[in-house]
Design a protein around this nucleic acid. Structure first.
Length: 660
RNA sequence: GGGGGUGUAGCUCAAUUGGUUAGAGUGACGGCCUGUCACGCCGUAGGUUACGGGUUCGAGUCCCGCCACCCUCGCCA
């Protein structure tokens, strides 16, 4: 290359008129007019028009004619103002052009499979296959720059608050809980495997134990689950952990990070031509709103409500249903279930028979027996297929419960399983929100969700699970300790009884069976707690120190204060049924670390891609990553995963068999 | 793993009820053109209708299988 670039194509302006410049880039379009040739030369900053005149410089004119789409050239020439009738108002360099005096052909190019144009519409497969061409497009380049800008701002904020960026291992260890791990065979230890981390959770806690005080990392995470529009096998988190802090400190820290990168995007001149929602939303107001998990579930039936449709709140009818005349509602309510409804203001005529049919079908798909739909007629009476099941007084009560007006539409769902009702109502609320035009992509509804339940109860298994993860600090450590003690007490008592029996009747106890009348009955943790005087409500009423940040119905960050004492940690393991042996095997290194003077600590992790999607108004995660995989987890450009040489497999002691 | 959608020229799409030689736009290539800017005009090339079977006198179209991509449920913090 003989020419040294002096300025980027897209940076040229009127003020450069008269200057001699050298630009480099790709031939975007070429227009031949016989004696005149124009080339739009493109680089990362934009496009500029190169002009060639056969009468002035015939050889250059010929060389220009020989350039084609996506050829790479360097051009030196004088910047000149265009005559007013030739100004192109649609591009930022449209007031000038370069009168080229030297042109260097740097490389040729095959005709690309996809066009390099902003509004490209084509098969997504082609974009992934030819990603390096796709990334030449301005929207893609701006996206990559925005991503960099957001990360730069995150680093800037945290670097200014005495955080240390620390890298944690990619070759990690398989964890049976949670998502499926990607595993990596070890050559040095045939038959043994590393796993890629689902997140650096335990390592960042170890950093705190190590006394690093404040850690962050732009961390790659790996999860081998089926993909979705908002999911990829590898993705990036801003991972943060802090020592000697409580919930408020972590939240306050994030309330500096989030407005920081939103402002960074808004102030960056690179993005002034972009039409991302984030550029129009103004400053993020702090403190960010907070909502308890209970409120979110009560009003929105989801722990990540979309606040843009916050006026569409759900109404619970469970108590009322217990005594109502409609059996479907009554049995659900009295059977420990849930009855909830949604009032859609003024929408009585907005749903076609077919749409209501679709809603019912969706509801049934989620396990509901049906979805009741009621119109409030002009006379204030209920106009619905199920109206006949309700006497007039009950109809009035229903309308009062919803504060319904004539012309409103009401949907009600009842089911013995709360989960089903929540799923149906959340789905419905999203749909109605769309129909009412409330889900404006240019608006941002940001809220913290706090006071999550400590446990989730899976009835089928009679088992408790930690809601967030088992390292989250309970809000009420003392009660958890009492519960754990009860379980431990019961267990040691049982062991003692069995030992006693063994002495008398070794044969019978060898068959440790539930049915033996002489053996103590094996109880679930919940069973034990009930026996010890704790109610299920009490157990499920326990809260933790988790906090999620929710943006427009998407969880964009989540974290918690952790347990820093082994006894607290052991108590929790006890209640979620993780035995000492299991805990030792899976998290032994953490337990050991906690036992060596772990400071109180907590943190948060924020999904970079999900943030970008929300702020840029995109709905596919592939559009905010440089080199994403397909929805089936393949990289279509480099074509992986693929087979490896038999020799390598042999070295690893691996033999490939058909998957069962 | 289940369900749905898509697959025709390099790209975006069309092709009537199963019926002649599978068309158009765009891009590519060649020619003409002194102010274009998605330039315009003229011409040329370009097809294993994803792939494999089947039904039929005849299949882009119907049936079965299979592959890829996208969406979705399950799964997933």
């Amino acid at each position: 290359m003989n020419h040294k670039r002096t300025i980027r194509c897209g940076d040229l302006r009127k003020e450069h008129v008269g200057k001699t410049v050298t630009v480099c880039g790709w031939v975007d379009t070429k227009r031949e007019m016989g004696a005149l040739v124009f080339i739009d030369l493109r680089d990362v900053a934009g496009k500029v028009q190169l002009a060639f005149d056969v009468e002035k410089r015939p050889e250059l004119h010929a060389l220009a004619k020989a350039q084609h789409h996506e050829y790479v050239v360097a051009a030196t020439g004088t910047v000149r103002a265009r005559e007013s009738r030739n100004v192109n108002a649609r591009i930022s360099t449209g007031e000038i052009e370069i009168d080229v005096t030297e042109l260097e052909h740097l490389n040729s190019a095959k005709t690309p499979a996809i066009e390099v144009r902003d509004d490209l519409k084509c098969d997504p497969e082609l974009r992934l296959k030819h990603r390096f061409i796709d990334l030449r497009r301005k929207p893609m380049q701006r996206m990559l720059q925005a991503r960099a800008s957001v990360i730069r701002s995150m680093r800037k904020t945290l670097d200014g608050e005495q955080f240390t960026e620390i890298e944690t291992p990619i070759l990690y260890k398989r964890t049976p809980e949670g998502a499926r791990d990607f595993i990596v065979p070890s050559r040095a230890y045939p038959g043994q495997f590393y796993a890629l981390p689902q997140s650096p959770q335990l390592f960042k806690q170890l950093c705190m134990v190590a006394g690093m005080d404040r850690y962050y990392q732009i961390a790659r995470c790996f999860r081998d689950e089926d993909k979705r529009a908002d999911r990829q096998p590898e993705f990036t988190q801003l991972d943060v952990e802090m020592s000697f802090v409580g919930k408020e400190d972590v939240i306050a820290m994030m309330e500096r990070v989030v407005p920081g990168y939103v402002r960074a995007l808004q102030q960056d001149a690179t993005f002034k031509d972009c039409d991302w929602p984030v550029l129009k939303c103004g400053d993020i107001q702090t403190p960010i709103e907070r909502m308890t998990y209970e409120t979110a579930m009560r009003d929105y039936s989801i722990d990540r409500p979309d606040l843009r449709s916050r006026d569409l709140r759900l109404t619970e009818l469970t108590e009322w249903s217990k005594t109502c005349s409609f059996n479907a509602f009554k049995t659900a309510a009295t059977g420990g279930g849930l009855v909830k409804g949604l009032r859609c203001p003024g929408m009585a005529d907005k749903f076609s028979r077919g749409q209501i049919g679709n809603l019912e079908r969706d509801a049934k798909g989620m396990g509901a027996a049906g979805l009741a739909s009621l119109k409030v007629a002009a006379d204030g009476k209920i106009d619905a297929a199920i109206a006949k099941f309700f006497p007039e007084a009950e109809q009035k009560a229903l309308i009062a419960a919803f504060k319904a007006q004539p012309g409103d539409m009401i949907f009600i769902c009842a089911h013995a399983k709360e989960k089903v009702v929540h799923a149906v109502m959340h789905n419905l609320r999203t749909l109605v929100g769309h129909q009412l035009g409330l889900l404006d992509p240019n608006k941002f509804g940001l809220t913290w969700i706090v006071d999550f339940p400590l446990f989730e109860y899976k009835e089928e298994e009679e088992k408790l699970y930690a809601t967030h993860h088992p390292f989250t600090l309970p809000a009420d450590v003392a009660t958890v300790a009492k519960m754990a003690d009860a379980v431990r007490g019961w267990r040691s008592n049982m062991i003692a009884q069995v030992e006693k029996l063994k002495k008398h009747d070794p044969e019978e106890t060898a068959i440790a069976s539930r049915s033996s009348p002489r053996l103590p009955q094996v109880l679930s943790v919940i069973g034990i707690l009930k026996q010890a005087g704790f109610t299920l409500e009490q157990v499920l009423g326990l809260r933790n120190n988790q906090y999620d940040l929710v943006l427009n119905g998407t969880e964009i960050a989540g974290g918690s204060i952790r347990m820093h004492r082994t006894d607290w940690q052991e108590n929790l393991f006890e209640l979620v049924g993780i035995t000492k042996e299991e805990a030792e095997k899976k998290f032994g290194f953490l337990m050991n670390a906690l036992a060596h003077g772990a400071p109180p600590h907590g943190g948060i992790a924020m999904g970079i891609e999900r943030n970008l999607m929300c702020y840029m108004g995109l709905d596919n995660i592939q559009d905010v990553m440089a080199f994403p995989k397909s929805a089936t987890g393949r990289d279509l450009m480099i074509d992986t995963p693929n087979e490896v040489e038999p020799k390598l497999l042999k070295e690893l002691g691996i033999e490939i068999k058909p998957v069962a």
